[in-house]
Nucleic acid binder design. Structure first.
Length: 595
RNA sequence: GGGGCCGUAGCUCAGUUUGGUUAGAGCACUCGACUGUCACUCGAGAGGUCGCGGGUUCGAGCCCCGUCGGCCCCGCCA
């Protein structure tokens, strides 16, 4: 954006974009006083706007009394109008840390446009000075947002948004908005509910995602749709989870999994490029089963090895009680080999065991090879020569979990991640993208034993597994895919069911009877009966992508006005109580928690 | 719903282990000095509900109980 375009009645240029080429020019600038240095007869101050900082100097002996008075009483964060001339700085007075450091503006006019109280949290921070507490940063967000770091993040967010629009528009997608006041959904995350004034006792829900609407748009023939959609989920927060968040929501008709993945890769490539990074030309794919087998998780971090291996055979026949019990019970013994791990102390390995136990494992078996010999509680129970099949080289440590896969996989996943972090095996400059495919259609609710959709109930089964749906539903694979980067899920999607008969079968399997399906998803079933093209799509977690590309550690640093971990907005103080009359009008009653 | 950490001057923190005189420091702020600074420098000064409530004690920033707020994690997030 050129300065000419940003010139206004008040200003001719932006502070941060002045350069040597402007030397001699008369300029008018508006901005915030970043920091002032009053030397007595000479006052310097740094003036800040969205483009950056520029130094302004005021020679009090030559200034008018009015200008001199303002210059010697400048408080931080005051908004001022500066008139002056851009001048080259003397050689020795240049500041290499500023992009405007070779010049300064010699002020002839200086006026306060917006007086400012001393900021309650500092905007200008000294080198090495701590950031104010996050609570205060959120409470006084307009001050925190003035900081260069947050401005950079939000500008990047803007650019990524425009890149998304540009790329998808170019690819033939239409940006179409869907309602924010929608129908509550009984499963999935908890809904944010909005009471209806006109319909006593009835509620809207804020959308958890525009899922059904985008399918309706496909039925309606729009063929390719996208939306940068705000979504809401009333669940507890995390550093990477906000109650209201933004998805890049994409859906297309007459597509296969490959088509959606190709489009998604193109978008990802465009986004990463906009942020100055590259995505490999081909993104590898890995089946869900393989991901769980080798990494213990469906979103593996492939920046490092430490793969999980099945060592059941090595332990089979051993009288070691832990492994024997697991193997006899139909479980397995799986583990990871840590090259050079024999140097880990007893205490360190105990801490890894705590991690494994935290994930549900009963314990963490350890065997190390030192000076050729195997050492560890289970080692002496191994049959002659069996230990060699553990694949441990001298100095290695093997860590094993015995038991059923649903215990050992998550436990080994966490151990693997912990080891990688502690032993600094995670390269900082590698982007390991992977598509995880062939998710199962269903999983069992551990409490009730009932089938639940892994993805969502509109996900299409793999055509070759259609016959398994009723007989062995847990073996049926879905046409679903997740894009994973460095162990983080960037987005996920699926081919949807476009045959109403298949949709009914899935509902039945999920224990949703005809009447309930009709009342909950009737409008979708009806639409599918009206002639639905094969369609599918994907949704990306936009905030999370911005966070990664900005190098931020919290979603709050890439959202202008985020909520706290208790889902409060500290600046405006939401949520808040409302007048009793407003509540009465909505036909609802508030009960005290301790009534 | 559960676990952990944190809350002392406007801001960042020390002081809490072992209760004891008037609660400190740096930055910011106010006043004064200073014409080449860029985290300006120098001198002086002002600034405190130790988150809040209750308890123990002759005495509580410090110990105990409760509560509010923030952050991190588990559960939860089709």
């Amino acid at each position: 954006m050129s300065d000419t375009a940003l010139a206004t009645t008040f200003r001719t240029h932006l502070c941060g974009s002045l350069r040597d080429e402007h030397v001699g020019a008369s300029v008018r600038l508006g901005g915030w006083v970043h920091r002032a240095r009053d030397l007595g007869g000479l006052v310097f101050f740094d003036l800040r706007d969205r483009a950056g900082l520029v130094q302004v100097s005021v020679d009090l002996s030559r200034a008018t009394p009015e200008v001199a008075a303002v210059a010697s009483s400048l408080g931080a964060e005051t908004v001022v109008l500066v008139e002056g001339t851009v001048a080259q700085r003397p050689e020795a007075m240049r500041n290499a840390e500023l992009s405007t450091g070779t010049i300064e503006v010699k002020a002839t006019g200086l006026r306060v446009l917006g007086p400012a109280e001393t900021p309650v949290i500092p905007v200008a921070r000294g080198k090495g000075e701590q950031l104010a507490a996050e609570e205060l940063r959120l409470r006084h967000r307009y001050l925190d947002l003035r900081r260069d770091e947050l401005q950079r993040n939000l500008v990047l967010r803007h650019r990524l948004m425009q890149t998304t629009r540009g790329f998808l528009t170019e690819a033939g997608f239409f940006e179409i908005e869907t309602p924010m006041l929608t129908k509550p959904t009984p499963e999935g995350a908890r809904d944010y509910l909005v009471p209806s004034r006109v319909h006593p006792g009835e509620f809207y829900a804020l959308p958890q995602s525009p899922q059904i609407y985008k399918q309706l748009l496909m039925v309606a023939g729009y063929d390719r749709y996208f939306q940068i959609a705000r979504c809401f989920r009333d669940e507890d927060l995390r550093a990477d989870r906000q109650p209201e968040f933004t998805q890049i929501d994409v859906e297309a008709s007459f597509v296969s999994e490959d088509d959606v993945m190709r489009i998604a890769e193109g978008l990802t490539r465009a986004l990463w490029r906009e942020a100055g990074s590259e995505v490999p030309t081909t993104i590898r794919r890995m089946g869900y089963a393989e991901a769980l087998e080798r990494y213990g998780i469906d979103r593996p971090d492939l920046r490092y090895g430490l793969e999980i291996a099945d060592l059941s055979d090595v332990f089979r026949g051993s009288e070691f009680v832990v492994t024997k019990k697991a193997l006899d019970g139909g479980g397995r013994v799986r583990g990871i080999r840590i090259p050079g791990g024999a140097t880990l102390s007893r205490k360190q390995v105990d801490e890894l065991e705590t991690v494994a136990k935290g994930a549900g494992a009963l314990g963490l078996l350890r065997i190390k090879r030192q000076n050729g010999a195997l050492d560890g509680p289970a080692a002496k129970f191994l049959a002659e020569g069996a230990g060699d099949r553990l694949g441990l080289s001298d100095g290695d440590l093997g860590l094993y979990v015995a038991g059923p896969d649903h215990i050992s996989s998550p436990a080994l996943d966490r151990v693997r991640q912990e080891v990688a972090q502690r032993m600094q095996l995670v390269p900082s400059d590698v982007n390991a993208f992977v598509w995880v495919t062939d998710f199962p259609m269903f999983e069992r609710d551990p409490a009730t034993g009932a089938l639940a959709a892994v993805h969502h109930p509109f996900t299409a089964p793999n055509p070759s597994d259609l016959d398994l749906l009723e007989s062995e539903p847990w073996r049926a694979r879905a046409q679903a895919y997740d894009l994973v980067l460095n162990g983080t899920e960037l987005g996920g999607g699926s081919i949807r069911i476009n045959d109403p008969r298949v949709q009914s079968r899935i509902f039945r399997l999920l224990g949703i009877d005809e009447a309930s399906a009709q009342s909950r998803f009737g409008f979708l079933l009806e639409a599918l009966r009206a002639g639905a093209p094969p369609h599918g799509g994907i949704a990306f977690g936009f905030d999370r992508i911005v966070m990664m590309l900005a190098g931020a550690t919290s979603l709050r640093d890439v959202i202008a006005f985020p909520k706290t971990t208790a889902a409060r907005a500290l600046f405006e103080g939401a949520p808040s109580a409302v007048p009793a009359s407003d509540i009465a009008e909505l036909h609802i009653r508030v009960e005290s928690e301790h009534a």
